[in-house]
Computed example of a mutant assay.
Amino acid sequence: MRRLAIYDMDKTITQRATWIPFLIHAAKTRAPWRLALLPLAGLASVAYLGKAIDRARLKEITHRLMIGRAIPPAELMAVAETFADDMAATNMFADARARVEADRAAGWEPVLATASHGYYAEAIAARLHIGTVIATAARRDADGNVLAGLEGENCYGPAKLRLIEAWMAREGLARGDIRVRFYSDHVSDAPVLEWADEPFAVNAHGPLRKLAAVRGWTVLDWEG
C-alpha cells in the first residue's frame, strides 16, 4: 500500500505565513518602487477581512500590485529560489524538517499541499526534498508569462481536498489503495484532516485545537 504524508505549508512547516513576505521579496528584487504600493495591498487585505473579496481575489490584487501584470517564468523562478533560500534559513520549524525526514525514512512519501502559489511553494518544498506539490496555480499568457489571475481553484479549505483528489486521479491512485497522514495548523483544513487516516493538528490555533480534542486527533507542537 502506498503511504502519503501530506503537509500544509504556512505555519505548519514554516513558522510564519509566506505570501506577503514573498511579495515584498519580489518587489525588492525586481522593482523596489513597488514597495510604495504596500498600503494598497494592505487595503485589499482589509477588504478581504471585511468579506468584500475572497482569498483568490486578494491574491490576484496583491500579485498585480507587487509583482506586476505578467512576469517571465524564468525571472519568477529566480525570485522564488532566493526567497526559498531565505525561508529555509529563517522560517522553517526544525521539528518540521525532522518529521519530514522521519516519515520518509519510515516509508511515507512526502507531499506538500498548500494554498500558497506553486511558483514559490515548489522552491520551498525542494529545500525539504519534497517533489510533489499541490498548490494554487497562476494563469499564464500565450507566451508562458505568469499572470496575476488564478488558474483553477485557490487551494484552500474544501478546495484543497478536491485538488488532492484530482492529483490522485492523475496519478491513478484509488483512495482505498493508499494510507494518508495529513499535517495542518488551521481549521480550514478540517476537510482534509477528516479524510486522512492519520490526522495531525500541528501548532494548532484555537479553533483547530478544539476540533482536534473533539475528534481525537493527535496534536503536535513543533519548535524552531
Rank of each mutant, 00 (worst) to 15 (best):
G144F: 06
C155N: 14
R162G: 08
L150R: 05
T136N: 13
I134T: 04
N154W: 03
A137T: 07
I124P: 02
T132Q: 10
A125Y: 06
A126I: 02
K160W: 13
D143P: 00
D143N: 14
V133D: 07
R127H: 13
L147R: 10
R127D: 04
A159K: 10
D141F: 03
L161Q: 06
G149S: 12
Y119K: 05
N154F: 04
L150T: 09
A135V: 13
C155A: 14
L161R: 03
L128T: 08
L128C: 04
V133S: 13
G144K: 03
P158V: 08
V133A: 09
G152R: 05
V146D: 05
I124V: 15
Y156K: 04
H129K: 13
A126R: 14
E151I: 00
G149V: 03
A125M: 11
R139V: 04
H129L: 01
H129I: 00
C155I: 01
D143Y: 03
E122F: 01
V146S: 04
A138D: 12
L128I: 06
A123F: 02
A148M: 00
L161C: 05
V133E: 08
I134P: 06
G131S: 13
T132A: 06
G157N: 14
K160G: 14
A126F: 00
A126T: 09
G131L: 05
A126D: 06
V146C: 08
A125V: 09
L150P: 02
I130S: 07
A123T: 00
A148V: 01
G152Y: 02
I130V: 15
L150M: 10
G157M: 08
V133P: 07
E122S: 15
G144Y: 07
